[in-house]
Write a protein that binds this DNA or RNA. Structure first.
Length: 883
RNA sequence: GGACGGUUAGCUCAGUUGGUUAGAGCAUCUGCUUUACACGCAGAGGGCCGCAGGUUCGAGUCCUGCACUGUCCACCA
């Protein structure tokens, strides 16, 4: 074995061995039929490039869980996969093409051409990502690899669409949606990122004779107003409700403004009256739906420019130009009443970055508030039930969220959920399986019979396919064996930022299509930030490539570093020192193993034999009546057994509760501070310990899910031919014994006392234990002196130790050559006194003080103070010796 | 505006139903060529657990208020 563990020499080879063993496939595990199924579906990374540290965290957590379950004897399945990530991928590729000089890729390449380009990019990205997942040591079943856009998954998507369409849950509707001008596509509500920006709030009237004043930050949209809404109890406006006014603001047609009442209007805000623009505001559109007679006039087009309806003066202007012009007109006409600088939140497109425009258009929606035929409930109810009472009120069908506070956040979000807009005007994704011919509309995955059919040009929201992930990966809609065995899945993990995007949609889709929950437990992890607490992002340039970290520190170190020091749901920071610490731990484990494996044949008895004899004679020991009893285990053995028993229990419990960080820290402390620092050191002087190998094996098993490579390698070095990966999780073969631990703790205290004594009297190791030279030898001495004590439950053993402690320290004191020390200190003190006297004499000399430079005098004073301090320290030391 | 976090050693963070003297890693300081490991060994220093109240025999932990900070949500035109 090498002196230091070098991950590069082992990782690739070990991963290959795991893959070759086929054990990643749960069906190939030993006695697979007898095992209880356990499944995790990997959150599929987007095929938009390469993996980042967040993925490293997810992979680590996921793999810890699946490796643990596999060792627990489960038929453990981790399905790997990737996500075609519709908008994100298309946006990325278009950006790349534009950077390469293609101004408008959609126009140049056409639909098929662009889709092909994106497909090429996605395939390349996919293979990069899958390799990275392998590099992370992820024990995923590659034979079940899935992709949201592959054939099986596409079939699932189409089937879901068909069923929901037939059930009337998917409908086509004319609505105001979020439109990204830059991306030329809709965005769902939760794909918006709200950005705060300064704006001007204009207060004005449509016309001089119009009775009500309104306010807006978007005056140009007022060219499409059809109503003014006021609160139904607002006395200022009561008389106008129901009246119609005709105003000419320069639009193509004079506007007919109806005064309507709406309880949603806040009478306290602004003028208490709201200009209603049904076509360019989601709220206004809702008012319009309640008062269809007011009409709707779109004035902004998909290109972000004003339409003809806005009037000849405004048509074709950008909204900004139109606003300027309209504001100028209002001022000129004397209609402008006030202008106020405010800050407002605007929604921007997550993927394209531009401020979205509210536009009315035909889109596809999933109705969340509509009763599902034959089920008596709405999708929203299903989504709520799954995390509260359990699906259909069955507590066994309940999704448990760790940490549980996210359940409340989720429930709150569901309450405010509106119909889900699922159509996108981009080309990369599952195309909507609906065909049109004139006014005919027909559901079909392939072109229907007959002439003149055209498929809907839109594609589906990428989350539509992600929503089916837990069962599409298992072959649904076919009734596969996998589906029967592995669904609902046991566990899912995700970052809190996609709780709504993804978890909510998975619950929606699974409860609807399979009448069951998608997973039993959800573990929410925080996001990794950089050393300064900032998010990792491309624009900040603070990204860290996991592969670089692996190259430098090894995969095990990376895995350990991302999960140590984190708590479920909380963000954590990632920095190099953490990885270095983890690497050190891996190396420590390696060296402990190296010692255990190489020292077995070594005979160290001569060391302990001689040194013991020099201090304690056999007769002396029996004289004091200590250590007469024989046991096959020393107290050190009994102690390490007890510690091991405790650690097995604790780590198991922590893993059951998804306390990964705590489990890792306990293993860390046990290996390093119990096993290596004490037990191993003691065995150097009390050899023939039968336990070292067994304890090491236990540690390897406990640590394997966290640091799979180094543990597997050591396992091989130990001579095992079967893989550690499929070894049994440690059984409880020892007993946790509080009494033993207290007694051993007393020994540890004793050793520390002796160390302190030694430091105080300045005694070297050589002086105390010429044959040993290691502090832990002292502990070995004590243990040996006690003999192999039979520990009494009443604590008799403790008594022995206390006796021994007393006697031992007395013996220590006897070892000190007091006279010699006194002599040495005596001369030192005498010298110091002389030195002090000479300085004092100098300072007493008036001529010196008067004539010498001030700095020199000060220097002398300092010297004197230092010497006096030193003297008093030496005197104290001498006094202590005499005691 | 609403909701939810965070505030514990110089730094980064643990601390599971309230319970001995509040922990870890890193950093700092001291001493070690000690044949498993300097990616190491042995020690040391460093904490009004954000502030103010309350409940309790007992509070880092529970309750109330406040401050600072972060995240998410929201149709104040």
């Amino acid at each position: 074995m090498d002196k230091a563990y070098n991950p590069k020499n082992h990782e690739d080879e070990i991963y290959k061995q795991w893959e070759d063993s086929d054990y990643f496939n749960p069906d190939k595990l030993p006695d697979a039929d007898k095992r209880e199924p356990y499944s995790i579906m990997m959150p599929p990374p987007n095929v938009t490039g390469v993996l980042h540290l967040g993925h490293a965290l997810e992979n680590s957590i996921m793999d810890i869980e699946v490796r643990y379950q596999r060792m627990r004897g489960k038929r453990a399945l981790l399905i790997p996969g990737t996500d075609h990530a519709a908008v994100a991928t298309q946006a990325r590729v278009e950006k790349n093409l534009q950077a390469a000089g293609m101004v408008n890729p959609r126009a140049v390449l056409g639909r098929d051409g662009l889709v092909e380009k994106i497909r090429e990019y996605a395939e390349e990205s996919k293979s990069t990502i899958l390799n990275q997942i392998r590099k992370m040591g992820t024990s995923a079943d590659w034979s079940r690899l899935a992709y949201t856009f592959d054939e099986t998954r596409s079939r699932a998507v189409n089937e879901l669409f068909r069923r929901m369409y037939d059930d009337g849950l998917i409908y086509r509707g004319y609505r105001v949606v979020n439109w990204s001008v830059k991306g030329q596509s809709t965005c769902s509500d939760d794909e918006l990122v709200s950005v705060e920006r300064p704006a001007k709030l204009y207060t004005f009237k449509y016309a001089a004779d119009f009775p009500i004043t309104i306010s807006s930050t978007r005056p140009e949209t007022k060219l499409g107003d059809t109503a003014v809404a006021v609160h139904p109890q607002d006395s200022r406006y009561l008389e106008y409700i129901g009246q119609k006014f005709t105003v000419d603001v320069g639009a193509a047609q004079p506007l007919t403004i109806t005064i309507i009442a709406d309880a949603g209007v806040d009478p306290e805000f602004g003028t208490g009256a709201l200009g209603v623009t049904p076509a360019h505001s989601a709220i206004d559109f809702e008012m319009y739906q309640k008062n269809l007679e007011i009409g709707i006039i779109p004035v902004i087009g998909k290109d972000g420019r004003m339409l003809e309806t806005a009037g000849t003066a405004y048509a074709d202007l950008t909204v900004e130009e139109a606003r300027e012009k309209f504001v100028a007109w209002l001022r000129a006409e004397g209609l402008m009443i006030g202008e106020e600088e405010i800050t407002q939140n605007v929604g921007t497109s997550d993927r394209f970055g531009d401020v979205v425009e509210a536009l009315p258009m035909e889109q596809w929606f999933v109705a969340v508030n509509k009763e599902i035929p034959g089920r008596g409930k709405t999708l929203k109810q299903f989504m709520t039930e799954a995390v509260t009472t359990g699906h259909n009120g069955d507590p066994k069908q309940k999704v448990t969220i760790t940490p549980d506070r996210f359940a409340d956040i989720y429930a709150h979000w569901i309450e405010n959920l509106r119909d889900w807009c699922i159509s996108r005007q981009i080309w990369w994704g599952h195309r909507i399986p609906v065909w049109y011919r004139g006014k005919e509309m027909f559901y079909s995955e392939t072109m229907p019979e007959g002439e003149g059919w055209e498929q809907d040009p839109d594609t589906l929201d990428t989350w539509f396919s992600s929503a089916a992930w837990t069962f599409s990966t298992l072959g649904w809609p076919e009734k596969t064996k996998d589906l029967a065995d592995f669904h609902p899945s046991n566990w899912m993990q995700m970052g809190h930022e996609i709780l709504f995007f993804w978890m909510a949609r998975m619950i929606l889709m699974t409860t609807y299509a399979l009448d069951t929950i998608p997973f039993r437990d959800v573990y929410i992890h925080g996001i990794l930030r950089d050393k300064n607490g900032q998010k990792f992002s491309k624009s900040l340039g603070n990204g860290i490539d996991p592969l670089d970290v692996i190259a430098q520190y090894g995969t095990d170190a990376l895995r350990l570093s991302v999960i140590k020091g984190i708590a479920p749901g909380n963000d954590a920071r990632f920095y190099e020192e953490k990885v270095a610490d983890a690497r050190n731990f891996v190396n420590k484990l390696w060296n402990v193993a190296r010692f255990v494996l190489t020292s077995q044949q070594d005979d160290l008895t001569h060391l302990s034999g001689n040194s013991t004899a020099s201090i304690f004679s056999q007769s002396e020991m029996s004289e004091r009546g200590i250590g007469a009893k024989e046991s096959s285990y020393s107290i050190a053995d009994q102690w390490i057994q007890s510690r091991a028993a405790w650690i097995v229990q604790e780590v198991t419990q922590d893993l059951e509760k998804y306390q990964f960080s705590q489990a890792a820290e306990k293993i860390y402390a046990f290996l390093w501070h119990d096993f290596a620092d004490w037990y191993i050191e003691i065995t150097k002087f009390l050899p023939n310990q039968p336990l070292t190998r067994k304890i090491l094996e236990t540690i390897l098993k406990l640590a394997h899910p966290f640091i799979p490579f180094v543990t597997e390698q050591i396992w091989r070095e130990m001579g095992y031919t079967e893989l550690l990966m499929v070894a049994d999780w440690p059984q409880q073969q020892w007993k946790h014994d509080e009494t033993i631990e207290q007694q051993f703790s007393a020994i540890q205290d004793m050793v520390i006392q002796i160390r302190n004594l030694r430091a105080q009297y300045n005694i070297s190791y050589q002086k105390t234990f010429p044959m040993i030279g290691a502090a832990e030898g002292e502990a070995a001495m004590i243990i040996q002196r006690l003999g192999r004590v039979e520990i009494q439950p009443q604590g008799e053993g403790t008594m022995h130790i206390m006796n021994a402690q007393y006697n031992f320290i007395v013996n220590m004191a006897e070892l000190i050559d007091v006279e010699k020390e006194q002599q040495r200190l005596g001369t030192e003190i005498a010298d110091l006194e002389k030195y002090i006297a000479s300085i004092e004499k100098k300072l007493d000399n008036e001529q010196f003080v008067a004539n010498a430079p001030a700095a020199v005098v000060e220097q002398e004073r300092e010297k004197l103070a230092q010497a006096q301090q030193k003297l008093s320290a030496k005197q104290d030391e001498l006094r202590n010796i005499q005691v």
